[in-house]
Structures are given as C-alpha cells and as structure tokens.
Design a protein around this nucleic acid. Structure first.
Length: 207
DNA sequence: CACCAGGCAAGTA
DNA sequence: TACTTGCATGGT
C-alpha cells in the first residue's frame, strides 16, 4: 500500500485540538463534509478549546451543520470540552501525558466518543501508540478472509497490535493507508475489490 | 430514485 | 447478549 500510494501524511489537521474536533465530526461522515464544518469554525477563529467552550451549543451546531448529525455532534463536542475542563483544565496535552490506558478510558467515558474516535484522537492528536480500526479496516480484512464478519473492534485492534512493533508512526501510516486503499478499491459496501494493490485482493477475494 | 460516508448510544426482546 | 433505530448533510 505504501509503495502504491506513498505516505499519507495523516491526520489532515494543524493542531491536536483540531484532530479531536475532526474525529468527532467525521463519525459516519464523508471527510469532505467535515472540512466544510472545520472551515466554518476556523474562519471565525472558533477552532480552540476556549472559543468552543464559550460558544452557545445552538451556534456551534449551526457552524458544523455541513458535517451532518449537527445537533448530536455539537453536544458531543461540548461533552468532550467538559471532560477536558474537569480533568485537565482544558489542556489536551495533559491528557496525552497520562498513561495511554488512562487517557483512553477518560476519552471513552465521554458520551459520544467511542473506540474509534478515542483512538484517532490518541494516535493522530497525541502521537500515542494505539491502532485505529474503522469500517474500511474491517471490510478489507474480512475480504481477505483474515477476520470473521462479526469480529469486534478490540479483536481487530489486537490483531494489529500483537503483530506489529509498537510504533505510533507505523500505526499512523498503516491506518491511513488502509483508508486510502478502501476508498479506491472497496468503495462500496457491497462492491468487490478491483485493481487493489494487495495481491490477495485479486487472488482470493471473499464476497 | 437508492446508496454511501474515516460511529455511537439508546431502545427492545 | 444481540439486533434495531435515530441522528442528517452532501456526493455518486
């Protein structure tokens, strides 16, 4: 995948806080729509912990409207800000300085932040060694007959983390390449892969 | 028109 | 525990 696509330079964000916001906004949502929402915030200088904390939730929802589920996501962002305020005085870096397991638990305790969102924030925002699993990861591995249809998040994550060196740079690139590969060759949920750079896609696809 | 997109939580049985 | 449903915009 790396040979085919080259380095992905993920996450497309300027700051760790922006990663966290983007991770919530991109839940079940096309990234193009997320960029519209992020741009709305950035152009108004609202892309910071302090600004979002002071912002009425209705106004926040209106700003992130293009990302879809905007009422839900506005509340989820507020929930995240609340956790950061209570535990870390609003400082994301303090969260990342915690032991990884603790930081992950504190993120998962936020209503609206699940495993993928938490791990995306930790890996791409904090450069911490946790592997991110998403729908593409599941689909690609299943079509390669490497996992079952119903394999859960944790088992897939362990498959990677038990068989790779613990290296945030590697986890970063690997997940980004799986998404890139999925976008090009597993675009539709019901489609079969064609022209995938991974040999076994062509040799042994699993419907 | 149908289906998809870098999920998650709440409700039901 | 194992389904099902709501959330919502924008692209193909």
């Amino acid at each position: 995948m790396l040979g085919h696509f080259g380095p992905r330079n993920w996450w497309p964000a300027k700051t760790p806080f922006e990663v966290a916001v983007g991770a919530v906004l991109t839940q079940n949502t096309n990234w193009q729509n997320v960029t519209r929402a992020i741009d709305n915030l950035r152009s108004r200088n609202l892309l910071s912990y302090e600004a979002l904390l002071l912002m009425p939730i209705d106004e926040l929802a209106e700003c992130i409207r293009p990302a879809g589920y905007y009422n839900l996501k506005a509340q989820r962002l507020k929930n995240l800000l609340g956790m950061l305020a209570e535990r870390y005085n609003g400082d994301l870096r303090a969260l990342f300085d915690e032991p990884l397991r603790t930081a992950r638990e504190h993120l998962l305790a936020v209503k609206g932040i699940g495993a993928e969102t938490a791990d995306s924030i930790l890996l791409y925002g904090g450069n911490l060694p946790i592997f991110v699993v998403d729908a593409y990861t599941h689909r690609i591995l299943h079509r390669h007959a490497m996992i079952g249809e119903t394999s859960d998040y944790q088992s897939i994550q362990e498959l990677f983390m038990d068989n790779l060196p613990v290296d945030p740079g590697l986890f970063n690139e690997y997940h980004a390449l799986l998404v890139q590969t999925g976008k090009y060759f597993c675009l539709k949920k019901k489609a079969r892969c064609q022209g995938c750079p991974l040999n076994c896609f062509l040799e042994n696809p699993v419907a």
